[in-house]
Design a protein around this nucleic acid. Structure first.
Lengths: 235, 235
DNA sequence: AGAGATCGTATTGTATGCGATTATTGATGA
DNA sequence: TCATCAATAATCGCATACAATACGATCTCT
């Protein structure tokens, strides 16, 4: 059959499948993740599913409670702030590393990407969101620093999760013009300006998308107004 | 008996044991890590050992090759550079976050730590190295940013590994005076200066310790001089 | 009827087993 | 003597099996 025989690859596949499912919100934050049903669905044993859970837990995409299994992570607002802060620091580093060291081909690739973003800007489907994220990943790749890439990817993933919880419904995350400016600064080799632009760009993403802490985790807060309107008496 | 009954804790123990063993160089870089013998030694099954390997591989402390098992990571010089670059970026972020936000108790704790470093500076045992590392971890902890702490810890671990391979035998990594200056800048709330100091401090660590790429991975290169001295003829 | 105890089931944590892949050793021939 | 190769031993990848724990339903007693 068409099954992969290469060892270690099936484990990887499980990990990637779950990762994508979480980021694309097919698996919603807080959702329970039973080992055997997932394994059954993916055609592997619990062993591999657990392995994937371990990795995803390290990356902060799933929570792993002893004897109570795994669930899609549900970051608090505080964790969200932490993630964004670190991400800003990391991407500032990306910008500094890249300033003045961009090859012509790389610059072109980035600009082609931005054009795609612009085209997709009309429809606010998931396409626009995906492209915005990929722009940042592409930048991290171009540094040639594998560790930096990994950290940026990880932070980005967690940001996706965070925006899924706290973000506005259809905010288009990244302004295309800001990406353009950034490329310009990188081309010019102005490291300070590039870092500054990146910093403010990501700051803007937060304020644009994250301003509304609409979802409340605690049921009490959700129900409080209903209780009042019915004349009930919550303690 | 005294064995931990709490579930998930044994897995954690295995992970931590291996981690420490690697960082303290009880397990030397490149060393093979067979699942069976390690599990037997630690009194657990291969399952838990593999779980630990997975995490350690993500953190870059072990290499995991398909069908060939695990071994203690042996970073290349290029990877080493990547790690140090990222670490500098992360710790710069730490410095910026902390500048002007240090409580009196925290500042005192840091200064007490530096005094300890100074005391241990005479004997260049592993004590000095450990204290130098812990200073940076303490700083990261004080930011209150859990993700930043994790990344700094990870980068530090890998740096230990790197210095074990490429570092001078008894270089005392961190200059105590540089730590002192840094604390001063943090107290004064001078974020730019603190970041700058941190950056150069870590840069200095690299140049002090990493200059000599003495260790060779390949057995052939190690043995070449011996072969020559015996009149043998390596190709 | 409601609070609490009890049992059954579902799910997790860990160990073990089986087939597959790789390393190693000894044999064979040039 | 050195290279080639086959058989054996060691090790890994993954599935499965078993034990422990937590959750939920029923049952009892007030």
């Amino acid at each position: 059959m068409g099954e992969p025989r290469t060892p270690g690859l099936r484990a990887q596949s499980v990990y990637r499948a779950l990762r994508r499912a979480i980021i694309e919100q097919a698996l919603k934050p807080g959702m329970k993740l039973p080992e055997d049903s997932i394994g059954e669905q993916l055609g592997v044993s619990r062993t591999l599913v657990r392995e994937a859970f371990g990795r995803l837990a390290v990356e902060g995409l799933v929570e792993l409670k002893p004897n109570r299994g795994a669930s899609v992570a549900y970051p608090t607002l505080e964790e969200a702030r932490d993630v964004f802060d670190v991400r800003r620091g990391l991407e500032r580093l990306v910008a500094e590393s890249l300033a003045g060291r961009l090859s012509a081909a790389q610059a072109n690739e980035l600009e082609a990407h931005v054009r795609q973003e612009e085209k997709a800007h009309g429809q606010d489907g998931p396409e626009s969101i995906r492209l915005s994220g990929e722009f940042h990943i592409k930048l991290a790749e171009m540094t040639g620093n594998a560790l930096l890439l990994r950290y940026v990817q990880e932070a980005s993933s967690r940001c996706s999760l965070i925006l899924a919880i706290y973000g506005r419904p259809h905010s288009s995350e990244c302004a295309v013009s800001e990406h353009r400016q950034l490329i310009e600064a990188l081309r010019a080799g102005d490291a300070a300006r590039a870092a500054h632009l990146m910093d403010h760009h990501l700051q803007a993403v937060v304020t644009r998308a994250l301003l509304t802490p609409r979802a409340e985790r605690d049921i009490r807060e959700v129900l409080a107004p209903y209780a009042l309107s019915e004349g009930l008496n919550p303690p």
